[in-house]
């Protein structure tokens, strides 16, 4: 079972995605802020990270950049999400994909499947 780390501060959306992905038989670990995610990732090896950009204590783009510099965790695919209309904000992040909110749930599945099957 593939593990997905989900970082999303809005709890209803976090619940929705958690529900969707668990339904598709992914192992989902959800985080409400950057801090808890950063603590967890130190010892964790998810197969994919799905992360909101605007977090209460951090920025998904910056988190992603930092992660890509890490020798062991740099290869983990990261999908960034945002309600920001301009996807170019994620350009330099090193993320493999950007999903604009609101998204179609099918689009989300499709993208995730691309990277971890």
């Amino acid at each position: 079972m593939k593990t997905i780390f989900l970082v999303e501060d809005d709890h209803s959306l976090r619940d929705l995605i958690n529900f969707l992905l668990s339904d598709k038989e992914y192992n989902v670990e959800a985080f409400a802020n950057a801090n808890t995610f950063e603590n967890r990732i130190k010892n964790g090896e998810p197969d994919l990270i799905l992360m909101d950009i605007m977090l209460p204590d951090g920025n998904g783009v910056e988190l992603c950049k930092a992660l890509k510099l890490n020798s062991t965790k740099g290869n983990i695919p990261v999908i960034l999400m945002s309600a920001h209309a301009d996807p170019s904000i994620a350009d330099d992040s090193g993320a493999c994909h950007f999903i604009k909110k609101p998204f179609d749930i099918d689009e989300l599945y499709t993208e995730i499947q691309k990277y971890i099957g």
Partner: peptide, 18 residues
């Protein structure tokens, strides 16, 4: 505001799609 509005909208849309 638009950002804040879109987050619940995303959830609404997601559940509706489910």
């Amino acid at each position: 505001a638009s950002h804040e509005l879109k987050t619940p909208l995303t959830t609404i849309k997601g559940y509706l799609q489910i």
